[in-house]
Simulated scan of single mutants.
Amino acid sequence: MPAKSKAQQKAAGAALAAKRGDMKKSELKGASKSMEKSMSEDQLEDLASTKRKGKPEHVSKTG
């Protein structure tokens, strides 16, 4: 499941770093905090490894 936006990709990267112990879990905020709790390391790695080229910074919640 590739990331839909740059923001989602960055949040997944932060959550992955915390899950691996490279970053303190207490430093996480917002989406990255909930991603770390609810997603596996493999899922986070898949989102974080998405290429950013052509992705919008944010995706609207409509649709």
Rank of each mutant, 00 (worst) to 15 (best):
M1Y: 09
A11V: 05
K4V: 13
K61C: 13
V59W: 07
S38F: 05
K37Q: 15
A3R: 05
L16C: 03
E45C: 08
A48T: 10
K53D: 05
K53Y: 05
S32M: 03
M23L: 15
G13V: 00
K4A: 14
E27M: 14
V59T: 14
A14L: 14
Q43N: 11
G30Q: 05
G54H: 02
A11N: 05
K55G: 00
L16W: 08
M23T: 07
T50Y: 01
K37I: 08
G30R: 07
G30F: 01
K24Q: 12
S5D: 03
A7M: 10
K51Y: 09
L16I: 01
K55C: 06
L47N: 03
L44C: 05
R52M: 07
S26I: 07
S38R: 14
K25A: 15
M39C: 14
T62M: 08
A12S: 07
L47P: 04
K25C: 07
R52D: 06
K53H: 02
A14N: 00
Q9H: 11
Q43F: 03
G13I: 03
S60A: 15
G63Q: 09
K37E: 13
E57P: 06
M1H: 10
H58W: 10
P56T: 10
D42G: 08
K51V: 07
S49H: 08
T50W: 03
L44V: 11
M39T: 12
Q43D: 12
K53F: 00
T50I: 10
K29D: 07
S5Q: 06
A31G: 10
Q9M: 10
K10T: 14
K61V: 12
P2S: 04
L16R: 02
L28N: 05
G54T: 01
K19Y: 03
E41G: 08
P56D: 06
V59R: 04
E57Y: 07
M23S: 06
H58C: 09
G63E: 04
K55Y: 03
T50C: 03
H58F: 15
K10W: 04
K37M: 11
A11F: 08
L44N: 09
K6C: 04
K61R: 15
K55V: 00
K19W: 01
A12L: 04
